[in-house]
Design a binder for these strands. Structure first.
Lengths: 215, 215
DNA sequence: TAGATTGTTAATCGATTAACAATC
DNA sequence: TAGATTGTTAATCGATTAACAATC
């Protein structure tokens, strides 16, 4: 077995993976050729020891006195996150949230391509959101087949979300990115990611409540 | 020192606090009088041991053979998160994201009251978003003073976000809930919560990339 | 009472921090 | 070479899991 194959068998800890996201951001802004663990950690409030430890799970090695070669380290992280390959997605729900998402610059940055937008409101059909004409739900099977879409984004009202999820799954979608504040029930083979701000809201309220009481 | 005071000195672990949010949701839907640790954990994929351990940090005690009294347990969690008291916030940026947020049902549910919406676009001033007329930024000091607002929500384009943050801070806001995909720099006494979907995006891409390669 | 479910203590696991030899 | 920074090993810390006595 090759060394690189062996590396792949070592599981990267979840906590390390979380920090990789942060390192990716730092590195993608970095202009210099080399960066030290100290420098990576500084603005993220992460100790250099932690950074070095994290980076041992990667193939890239640092050079004593110099640090890590930004270009290849960034490339390895990008590959790990699949940033290099384009992911085609469809978006259901052309309301305010849907339109906000379509304008979100991260999609382009991380090579996520929204190939179609759907809505069930007849008044919205054929209107434009950005470059995309809003399509009726009936067109979904055709679009998914044509572009081989694997991911669906749900940003419909919570009352509609489960119906949309079922429709997506019936059309062979593999992953759902859900922005409706509801617990969707999906079969175990479907990857479900909930983007719910309730957690953040509670954390914020909790912190503020504590502060209030402390004084 | 009283027992209840002593309890307050024990720090609740962060991981436990995260799960409390989930328990809160389960309990707020629960119709029965009592619920067991087993039942709480079931739909959350959390072991009953973990649930019981978590709940030892609270004042509520369970009753063998019965479980936990839903009403008081929920009340204690709600108090912990400050769900019972109303929090007044202002929102800056009446674009799609801002409008989507204003329609988000969680605010009412968790007693967060948006008292005003601001925008710098003259065309938007005095138009209505829900019940609220969009106000010019000049009105901010007055509104913050009048309603004693402590929290500002930023949902302006990323190029404007830092400027808005500065303005909020200058007007004595204590916490910022930032929805713009940028790193704001704020003084250490300001509570900053970033609601950024980039993390979720990367996680999703990572999982999908792994699956793709596995096959 | 018998059985179910709690609360707590001890054991395990995983992640972070500290220390230091290796090396450019 | 001397000094800075890496990679790795050991120590610490915190969180989870297992086990079981307490008790309703």
């Amino acid at each position: 077995m090759e060394n690189s194959e062996l590396k792949n068998l070592i599981i990267i800890p979840k906590s390390t993976l979380e920090r990789y996201k942060l390192y990716q951001r730092i590195l993608s802004c970095e202009k210099r050729e080399y960066i030290s663990s100290e420098e990576i950690g500084k603005s993220l409030y992460i100790s250099p020891d932690q950074v070095r430890k994290d980076l041992t799970y990667l193939k890239n090695r640092g050079i004593p006195k110099k640090g890590y070669f930004v270009k290849t380290l960034l490339r390895e992280l990008n590959e790990l996150f699949g940033i290099t390959r384009t992911m085609k997605v469809i978006l259901v729900g052309a309301g305010h949230l849907g339109q906000a998402l379509i304008n979100y610059p991260g999609f382009k940055k991380y090579k996520i391509e929204i190939v179609a937008v759907f809505d069930n409101d007849p008044n919205k059909i054929d209107t434009f959101v950005g470059d995309l004409a809003v399509l009726p739900l009936e067109d979904m099977p055709r679009i998914i087949r044509r572009f081989q879409v694997k991911v669906g984004i749900i940003c419909v009202p919570d009352t509609e979300a489960q119906k949309v999820a079922n429709l997506l799954i019936a059309n062979k979608i593999k992953a759902i990115w859900n922005f409706a504040p509801v617990n969707l029930s999906v079969p175990p083979n479907i990857i479900l990611r909930n983007e719910d701000i309730t957690g953040g809201l509670l954390t914020l309220k909790h912190i503020l409540t504590k502060r209030q009481l402390e004084k």
